[in-house]
Design a protein around this nucleic acid. Structure first.
Lengths: 245, 245
DNA sequence: TAGTGGTCTAGACCACAGC
DNA sequence: CTGTGGTCTAGACCACTAT
């Protein structure tokens, strides 16, 4: 720690606020106080520059950032307006299971149940954009949180994208983590559904096949190809996606 | 100037693309091609400005935007680096059910099954931060997509936040849409789970109570209070959250 | 100390909107 | 046409990091 002794209480004042931030805060206050309402036009960049005694570029930065934050909208040739804030949308964040468990301060462990070379059936071939019968890698891993199974990860991998997949030690790096490192991620498709598990999955999760599972399907793209198709089964009674904002 | 094979600014863009965008795209290509890897330092603003033949401010804008997008990280006094791919995280967007159905070009219809004044039990009181026995509004609505039930919305509303709730016509505006308009949204908590439905919900969804449901629980905050607590049940076999990026 | 990013200036030209 | 935002320049000073 610091030994100077006078730092904690003393340094309240010299908060040197950048001009663009001061402008942002002032504009925000106008909106939040209701002084400017949705759809209202706000002063032009020229006017604000004059008012705050700064250059137009500085005003531009403040207004641009508020526009990026969807607080203002701008129309070239017309003006800048207070945005309609209609964000119904709720965003759910899905992270790597190992990272998530560790973030909760719990112990993560995984168990490799299968690791094999296989050939694509019709459905897999379609998902990968390959021909039926093409070789694929296949792994099934059970993830535990404090020794309780919380995920069965059933993953198919394109050998062209990750030829070293079969040589990995998945107790060190999860397949997800390995693939992220091995092949630059270009895109993701995903879906979340609720399904009852097949018997083998139910057994691995130590639940009844009657119980609902939260199923995350995820397809990743890399190097212009489908890199990996994964189905992740979570017991519905002890796993959920959650968040807030 | 000798330009080695490493030269990244050599490409002429025939289209009329703003310089900062061209720079962004070029930098992105270096990363996505794997030429620059996570943690690598990229050239300084000065160097890039010289290489692209633009002013430092223009390079600054390109690099700043990539930093805002979490593709780069910058350290004052040190340099600019390729960010660790943190976008393990997959974001699922949850929209209003009516909006979502309409966006698919399908017909949305809702059926009001219950609309009543009730009193909070222990669990509800805890969720609302009120005392047990306090009055609440309660509605149950079934949403249809092309006449097939896809959601049962079981909602409890704080009368202090939305006193007019009981007078609304929910065939015009969904409860969600009404609440968004009536009370400024300050925050949201949500979770997604998989559960088997109680019998009454199963009946409304026209499914068996054995079938898994995708359950979205959502709690909204407004005016410093909990505005609404909703549980939305979706049949697992015909509804999923999905997206891509 | 030299090099980096963070901020800012006082101009400029352009595309576009609205009159 | 004027006024708006969109982009860009060629400098500048500062705070910070690394050596």
């Amino acid at each position: 720690m610091k030994e100077s002794g006078e730092d904690i209480a003393a340094q309240e004042e010299p908060a040197r606020i950048p001009a663009f931030l001061h402008i942002k805060n002032t504009l925000l206050a106008q909106i939040q106080s209701g002084h400017w309402k949705e759809g209202d036009a706000i002063p032009s960049e020229q006017a604000l520059a004059k008012e705050f005694g700064v250059s137009r570029m500085t005003v531009n930065r403040a207004v641009k950032e508020l526009t990026d934050e969807q607080i203002l909208t701008r129309v070239q040739g017309s003006g800048t307006y207070v945005a309609q804030h209609k964000y119904q949308a709720t965003l759910v964040e899905i992270r790597s299971i190992a990272e998530e468990v560790r973030a909760r301060g719990h112990a993560h462990r995984s168990e490799l149940h299968r690791l094999e070379r296989a050939r694509a059936n019709e459905a897999l071939a379609a998902a990968f954009g390959l021909k039926s019968g093409q070789p694929l890698f296949h792994s099934i891993i059970v993830h535990f949180e404090n020794e309780i199974p919380i995920q069965v990860e059933d993953r198919w991998v394109n050998p062209e994208v990750a030829p070293e997949y079969m040589q990995q030690d998945f107790s060190v790096l999860t397949p997800n983590e390995y693939l992220m490192a091995a092949a630059p991620l270009q895109g993701v498709n995903y879906s979340i559904e609720a399904l009852c598990p097949p018997k083998d999955v139910a057994d691995m999760l130590q639940i009844s096949a009657r119980e609902a599972c939260l199923v995350l399907k995820r397809r990743t793209l890399s190097k212009g190809q489908v890199a990996s198709v994964a189905t992740m089964w979570h017991p519905g009674n002890r796993y959920q996606f959650a968040g807030s904002f």
